[in-house]
Structure formats: structure tokens, C-alpha cells
Simulated scan of single mutants.
Amino acid sequence: MATSEDITKPKLLPTKILKCKNPDCKAWVRDEMSSGDQLCPMCKGPMGRSMKHLPALQKKAKPKPRKPKSEFDL
């Protein structure tokens, strides 16, 4: 059984988002991930700027390029 000590909650940071202005649509997107056209990806309505407390994004490590194998390597 997991205890509260076993489960670590991610730290939430205030993050800029774009939120759909249509009251029937609940879509939002991180500002840094938006395409710049400021149209809702779901209903194509207008988007407005807002803030939301979200976990920080994890940056993926770029894989190191492989060295070409030579015929002398064993």
C-alpha cells in the first residue's frame, strides 16, 4: 500500500496558457506550445490569455550521435 511519503507530487508553477473563450469548450494549451494562430484547436473559436498552476515540463535528453564503427574496433 502506497503512503503519502511514497508518492511525490510534482511542484506546480504558474504557467501562461491560452484558454478557449467559448463557454461550452474547455480546451486550453500552454502558451509555449501554441501554434501562434490563437484559435482553439477543438472548436476553432477565439483564445484568451490566462494562467494555470501546472507541473514543469520535463526536457528530454537528446541522444548522443553514434560513432561510426571502424573495421579495427572489436
Rank of each mutant, 00 (worst) to 15 (best):
D73W: 14
Q58W: 04
P65W: 06
E5H: 04
A56R: 08
C43S: 09
K26I: 04
S70M: 13
K26Y: 05
G45M: 02
K19P: 05
K62G: 00
I17T: 07
W28K: 01
P55L: 06
L13Q: 14
W28E: 10
Q38G: 05
L12M: 07
G45T: 00
I17L: 09
W28S: 09
K64T: 06
M1N: 05
C25F: 10
S50Q: 12
W28Y: 15
K19G: 01
P55C: 13
K26S: 09
K67I: 13
K44Y: 14
K26A: 08
D37F: 06
D31Q: 02
T8G: 07
P14A: 10
D6G: 06
P14H: 04
F72R: 05
A27G: 04
I7H: 03
D73G: 11
K44C: 12
S50D: 15
R66W: 03
M1Q: 03
M1D: 09
E71I: 13
D37S: 07
P14L: 06
P41E: 13
Q58T: 11
K67A: 14
K52T: 03
P41M: 11
V29M: 01
G36T: 00
Q58C: 11
L12Y: 00
A61Q: 11
M47L: 15
P55Q: 10
T3N: 06
P10R: 08
